[in-house]
Design a protein around this nucleic acid. Structure first.
Length: 265
DNA sequence: ACATTGACCTGAGAGC
DNA sequence: TGCTCTCAGGTCAATG
């Protein structure tokens, strides 16, 4: 599930629930989710600390503790956060619980076990170490920067949008939406797109991610002229009424309108 | 450099 | 009902 707007939702949720409370204990239900530590190591890092702030880079959520380390969440395809009483039953697929002294706890769940939890004492260098490009919603990322990132690359538009080392935060769903609203085929070769076209892609990208974040990534609330509510439903294109096409592009199942997004020659 | 494939994991849903 | 098959919004390594 989680792409940038979803992780933004997790950040808001974390900020509203997990900040400024003392951590009493941690409990790891499945240590395969731990990136670079053990259940004991995680306990040492977190016990007695408080989360003070969070930041997001791409699909990663980082939480600063009152000690030295930051906790790093990646949600894979099926990660989520749940806050509630320590005495409630654990939610399904709980992998890590962080118990606070107020009797509540924050639970990280992951159905498919593809997410990771790690830690770092250098959040500034995190993106470089993870080989991540700039965050797609970074206010410092201007149209000209985006054009420079995309231009002169070989390969297709969708592939570049999804490439986390080029630009961080966009996955399969939102790359399709951006291509759709830009009127470009997902397999369009980047070296055939001029600066004006890429500037338009940039504007579409920001608008789509902004709108999606405003709706907390809840795709059922998106405007019906978006592709997302219609993909995978054998619906018609919300712009022109033609049948939506499905094809594997850049290794992923992709949806697009063959009329609004003509195939590259 | 780039695309493609398969692997990592598990569960939901479709089809029989 | 129960079985099998396919697919899933992420990422990585190996290969061409």
């Amino acid at each position: 599930m989680p792409e940038l707007p979803d992780v933004e939702r997790f950040k808001r949720y974390f900020d509203a629930t997990g900040l400024r409370q003392t951590i009493d204990a941690t409990s790891v239900m499945d240590d395969r989710i731990l990136e670079d530590t053990s259940p004991q190591g995680l306990g040492r890092i977190l016990k007695g600390a408080r989360f003070e702030s969070t930041r997001r880079h791409g699909k990663f959520l980082l939480a600063a503790t009152s000690h030295r380390d930051w906790l790093v969440f990646h949600f894979g395809m099926s990660g989520d956060l749940h806050y509630g009483s320590h005495h409630d039953e654990l939610p399904p697929y709980a992998r890590l619980a962080i118990v606070f002294t107020n009797g509540n706890r924050l639970v990280y769940t992951s159905k498919r076990m593809l997410g990771k939890i790690g830690h770092t004492d250098d959040p500034e260098g995190f993106a470089d170490r993870q080989n991540l490009g700039p965050d797609a919603m970074d206010s410092k990322l201007k149209a000209g920067d985006f054009v420079r990132l995309m231009r002169d690359r070989r390969g297709g538009l969708k592939s570049a949008l999804m490439n986390q080392s080029v630009l961080a935060g966009i996955g399969n769903i939102y790359s399709d939406e951006i291509c759709f609203q830009a009127g470009l085929h997902p397999a369009a070769e980047l070296n055939t797109l001029d600066g004006d076209t890429l500037t338009d892609v940039y504007r579409v990208m920001r608008r789509v991610l902004q709108t999606a974040s405003r709706h907390n990534g809840h795709t059922d609330q998106f405007p019906s002229r978006y592709l997302i509510p219609h993909r995978d439903k054998s619906d018609a294109c919300p712009q022109c009424g033609q049948a939506i096409a499905r094809d594997t592009i850049a290794g992923r199942t992709s949806y697009f309108c063959p009329a609004c997004q003509p195939a590259p020659r």
